[in-house]
Amino acid sequence: MSESIIKCEGLNKWYGSIQALKDVSIDIKKGEAVGLVGDNGAGKSTFIKILSGVHKADSGEIYFNGNLVKINDAKDSMKLGIETIYQDSALAPTLSIARNLFVGREPLTYKLGSFGLLDRQKMAKESLEAIKRVELDLRSGDELVENLSGGERQGVVIARALYFRTKVLIMDEPTNHLSVKETDKVLRWIEKLKAEGTTCIFITHNLHHVYPVSDRLVVFARGEKIADVQKKDTSIEDLTKMIVHD
């Protein structure tokens, strides 16, 4: 558990005159489940958007497996094995589960440059297996995502992460708008990902969701990292005080 997978040093990010990240350094270990908490506007989303290549830091360094890396776009991030689930849905609602699972990484039967013909058999077969792994009660990968509940959609995204053997899964508010039952399910999936060795970064403003599944908790406030503690060394009460009072 001591080997570093993502290490950031001195990340700064401005949006115009607003400094969304102030000198943030963090060292995430392989297989760790990190809960990233903080009030709205604390800079959590900004931080993970830098890791996933949506935004670029104005200064600072990122190391992946000990190597200095430049993450310029989503592709760079995915190539490293980082997958991000955004709070505002990571799926195309009008497409089937199978098509969603493979967007950008379609299995092909024939290839010419970047163009290729879909291996639809493989997509059907593997999508079914992938959703079975997250115990989703769906009979085929042909079902449209718009027909799924919020929890089922998160299941599809997590199935995608499992399928592509994501090394680091970042989830931005995955339990937002979910029922209690569905939230439980998402938390169980995170346990499963952990068991498979995936490093998880779980962002939420709901401490009660993240606390049970985290090994470590990081607190952001006004763009700064104000705490970084092992779960065994803290409690929900302590963390709540930090978030509220800072």
């Binding site: 996933s52 799926l91 195309a92 497409l95 969603n100 967007v103 950008g104 970047s114 013909l117 879909l118």
Partner: peptide
């Protein structure tokens, strides 16, 4: 309907942010 370019077209139209996040 049968190519990856088509799948990218659908996902771009359905949810551009999601398609981008998947590297399209």
């Amino acid at each position: 309907h049968r190519s990856n370019y088509g799948n990218w077209s659908y996902s771009t139209g359905a949810n551009q942010a999601a398609a981008k996040a998947m590297g399209v």
